[in-house]
């Protein structure tokens, strides 16, 4: 059951990324390129995604997940070095290629060599992040 609903969720996510145009690197770069021919589509995608999710978060109150277990507890609202450095690095890569993790997967079926190469490099980067993560981690607080 868990796997079935994970598949359904992934399929909705993948279909949404494809239909919204976010698997097209030019649309993402067009959004980030404020000084070029700016394309606001990504803001509509974000807005469209946030609406059902906001409702979903409200529905978690006083309930349990349908398949049991607990809802994830929100992490402490702490802005650490990992969060900031990681997001900056991610943003640079996002701009360079116009792909982030979700769309890079959703475009594999038709994207050709460039998209496959990106995903392989991304997986390598994820591996490389393991030792970096520990090194960057904030010193323990007193």
């Amino acid at each position: 059951m868990r796997n079935l609903f994970a598949f359904i969720s992934g399929a909705l996510f993948g279909a949404g990324l494809f239909i919204s145009g976010m698997t097209d690197t030019a649309k993402v770069q067009g959004w980030l390129d404020v000084f070029g021919d700016w394309d606001p589509t990504l803001a509509f995608v974000m807005g469209g995604g946030i609406l059902p999710m906001a409702v979903a978060w409200l529905l978690t109150k006083g309930r349990r997940p349908a398949l049991g277990g607990e809802f994830p507890t929100p992490p402490a609202p702490k802005i650490g070095r990992n969060l900031v450095v990681g997001s900056v690095l991610f943003g640079m890569g996002w701009g360079l290629a116009g792909l982030c993790p979700g769309p890079s997967l959703a475009s594999l079926s038709y994207g050709g060599f460039g998209h496959w190469l990106f995903v392989v490099a991304m997986l390598a980067g994820m591996m490389a992040a393991v030792p970096l993560r520990a090194r960057l981690a904030e010193p323990a607080e007193a």
Binding site: G86, G93, V119, A124, M127
Partner: peptide, 9 residues
């Protein structure tokens, strides 16, 4: 780009 996205995220 792929490496940066992988490490960064």
């Amino acid at each position: 780009a792929g490496l940066l996205v992988g490490i960064g995220t």
